[in-house]
Design a protein around this nucleic acid. Sequence first.
DNA 1: GGTTCATGTCATCAC
DNA 2: GAGTGATGACATGAA
Length: 803
Amino acid sequence: MLYLKKYFTEGLIQFTILLSLIGVRVNVDTYLNNQLPPLREIILGPSSAYTQTQFHNLRNTLDGYGIHPKSVDLDHFFATRRLLNQVRSLDHLRVPSTEVSAWLVHRDPETVVSAAGQSSPSITLDNGGGLEDVNNPEASTMRGGSGASESTYSHGGEEDSLGAVASEDSQEQPGERDSNNNNDDLTKEDIDLIDILWRQDIDLGAGREVFNYSSRVKESEAEKLNEEEKERGAEERERAESWRNGLNLGEEQPLSPVDGETGESIPEQFQNPDVTPELGSSGEEEVVPSTSQALPLLPVLPQAETPLDLEQQWQDIMAIMELQDMEVNDTAEGPFISNHTTGSSSGGGSSNTTTTTSSSSSSGGPAESGTIGGFGLSSSTLINQDVSLHQASLPSCSQDFPALFNADLDPNGALRPALLRLSSSNSTNVNSTFGATNLTGLFAPPVLNNTSNLTSGHALPDPFSSLLEESMLDEISLLDLAMEEGFSQAQASQLEDELDSDSGLSLDSSHSPASPSNSETSCSSAASSSSTSATFSEEGAVGYSTDSEAATAEMEEGAVGGYQPEYSKLCRMSYQDPSQFGSLPQLDNVNHNHTYNLPLASSYPEHPQLPGPCGKKAGRDKSLPHQSKLQPPREFLDKHSSRDERRARAMKIPFSNDKIINLPVEEFNELLAKHHLSEAQLALIRDIRRRGKNKLAAQNCRKRKLDTILNLEQGVHELRRDKARLLKEKMEFLRSIRQMKQKVQSLYQEVFAQLRDEHGRPYPASEYALQYGTDGSVLVVPRSLAAAEQSRKPDKKQKDKKK
DNA sequence: GGTTCATGTCATCAC
DNA sequence: GAGTGATGACATGAA
């Protein structure tokens, strides 16, 4: 714990301050106590064990920091960057409200309570929600022992003002706890809070006596501390085990996916935005009249969906999408009773009994989405049909369809025509829009009591809004963050790898300065191929044209080389001149030598003490036997000669290694023929040529390898970008579909509201629904009949499938 | 002293 | 069949 304290005072405080500045409160204690790896990584930085050693100082070059990959500062750097990314990504998390973790600390003077709040992950339960949950044991049970964060979101409005205080207070908790020890007044609220805490912590193994005030008073401070530590240890072990197993603590604990990047536990409200705390509260259900049979389902379903984790959500999304695809040419299948998802808490009051139009932004369940998919209409088309339907009138439809319906179908027993035909002049528009489709599944308003309010605030969670906007957008947002906020591809890759690292190939070595392009850039002046012309040996030959050899050649032929200062100039320029990397700004700080095809002769520095690749060559040959006492120039040359060069010099080969290696075969043979060479000399020359060519080939081979890796990496990046783009498009399509559904729904409501029977009375939405006939007419159908038709169609479908 | 990286070298295969 | 390129494997020096 010591190191945790250390980092708590450093990284965590910074992190907390950052979060408090933006009004977000995260229960850090939970993660600290649990030792969750992601947060530890955030605080402590990524472990070096998991950090891919970069080829060429990738990270420091990308971010402009001169941090060596092996530097111990790198962890701090990563931690800082991760913290920044955390803060940046918070706006994508849509934290609904702030949270006051220290609220209870002010209210509860008891040390143990505060300690329990601190030591246990349920510290955040000490808010108003906890007070309210006293009367709602189920809610407490749902939160479970570790439901630290989720329960605290149940009071969004009031806590906003307190949110800024929260972080500060949480910092002050230890001191305040001590100062509050003298306050022994326990109010009923405090006792209730203790009960709440006990209910939650008992799941974690904490005994009831921990919260027993009388027994606590008798305990000494040391015992308290021991208990705290024991509790903490038990919780930590439990948490660690649950973390390792990737499971939650128990059935009481709601499934709370952990953010892959932050390690932050995602509250269930985040998973399902439709399950707002207001909906979860018990008071809402009582307000709404529950005379309808369908109504009790409404508050239940959202709760049933709350434990969905992201994977399930994604599967649901895919299922929904498949459902849409399947039902493109199909009619509505879902029970029309499920179309009650027209209202939301944002909906206004009703102006009519049954025909209140819905202004909800979240409408449409799976059945609806499947139904609307069958129209294949653009939203503009739907909008254009709106006006004409306002004028829909109702002639006496009973004359049109006298045989279809009788009084038995009328639940009220009235002689009300059950099937009505709309005015044909207006229905044609509808027909052109919707075709011969049964609208009852799509448009049917909820089967409600006549006095019920469609927009009473209950709504089934929209699978698109709840699933897509969370799970899909998470990934998209990360990708967008990478692409739009100036992140480099390597950083984007890092982000994406945190999302899914499905490749065994470490692509994090991306943008390695050793990229072939770089090496090509760096050695662009040199020949990159061994198939060179005769002029190649003048400048660009690979390092066998040494100065020593050149000196020999100069003595023998007076031809090539000598000790040429240009070579050292080339060496410095090629290796270290960052201007050559101007087109690749991320390579500015790269000093690695990837000038594969540069002549080794050029690597000889003017001054041997100069660092660089030249020295390596010299050092490498230190182990080789030196010639006898040489003059200083000769010794220097020998020091910086390759093995073959020294051999050639020892064997008195009369021409340079450059020529030996790079001359074409014919010229090479001519050269050999010109000189009378011994067998040993010829063998050495052939070896030199073979090794020299092979060295070039090896360099080219490695370059190609890097090329391949980088190309693959680029391909991966492109594919990921495409994936993100496609996901975005998919989201847009879904949004447009949702808007279409809303408009169709409102259209339906308007039409239905204007319908009157022969007595001028409006049709009750609970008994009638609109339906389109095969001839394009719009009919008012009793719901019982519509339901019967609905039930028939799946049977037909199944039969068709069986066929 | 061990590890990683860059580079050279050899063996082998294919053209 | 020789020459050459490509490439895996290994060795070696430097950091």
